[in-house]
Amino acid sequence: MSFLMFLNTDLLVATVRLSTPITLAALGATVCERAGVVNIAMEGIMIIGAFFAAVTAFYTGNPWLGLASGVLAGGIYSLIHAAAAISLHLDHVVSGAVLNILAFGITRYLMVLFFGHPGTSDAIPSFLGDYQFAVPLLSKIPVLGPVFFNQTPIIYISFILVIFLAWFLKHTRTGLHIRAAGEHPLALETIGVSVYKIKYLAVFISGLASGLAGAYLSIENNVSFTEGMTNGKGFIALAAMISGGWSAAGSFLSALFFGFADALQIRFQVFRIFHVPEELFIIFPYAATIIAVAGFVRRSRPPKADGVDFIIEKENE
């Protein structure tokens, strides 16, 4: 058997599929942190997004409505983080941790209400995976064609979002304001832009993106919602964003790296290349991330005012 026969296009396609939820959540986190709000709540927001996407798709039979409601639910849920961290001046990490805890309680509670049983939802009648679409011509390009141009809707959205958000941060007014809010919020406030509004917006955007990541899991990659189906992906996204140097493109590449490592370990198992316990394969992507962080990723700088509370009128001047 050829030792490296699994290094094929399918590996890359699998990489993209595995990294999509991570990419989306990491993109959202990038916007959020560029505006100076630390976000560790992606895991919780994703699970909320996944749940509402599945519920809506289940009851309406329309996965596109499910997509919309999952995204929106993520956005709305993230506003709790915005309110807590920005208006109530709660430590951002604390607020994020609370949101993660709450999300699991809420979905479990609602599972029983909506489906009458916990665990996994009933299968939705139609899912976004049915809308796989090959871009004419482009999908014929060897290797890259199937990887980037013959995919399902949310995967396309994630590609577009990477480019869009990188462009958005660089070239739009709001993007400029977001970057300024994370570096020097007072400078922004003093020229008449409300820092609070910008931060709220950034958190909301991150919520939408994480909600989309959740929707991907429940109604595009699969056809039902399962409690805990995010399985730590939100935190991997956090790692991807940090090792991606707080940039859209960097987050995408880091997420791809993790997805690649994960796809690779599955193939290691399929080919049973090493005779060691399976758990060692499962560990592989995590270990690879540590090595990548230690070896390749240099000290990248977070936005200067990341996680710093912003209060305009000081109590004791």
């Binding site: 400029l176 300024a180 020097h184 400078a187 020229i191 200067k304």
Partner: peptide
């Protein structure tokens, strides 16, 4: 009130782009 990582132009137009 200048954002150090941004360019002169970006800082000048910030808020009135």
């Amino acid at each position: 009130m200048l954002v150090e990582t941004l360019t002169v132009t970006e800082n000048i137009i910030l808020g009135s782009e």
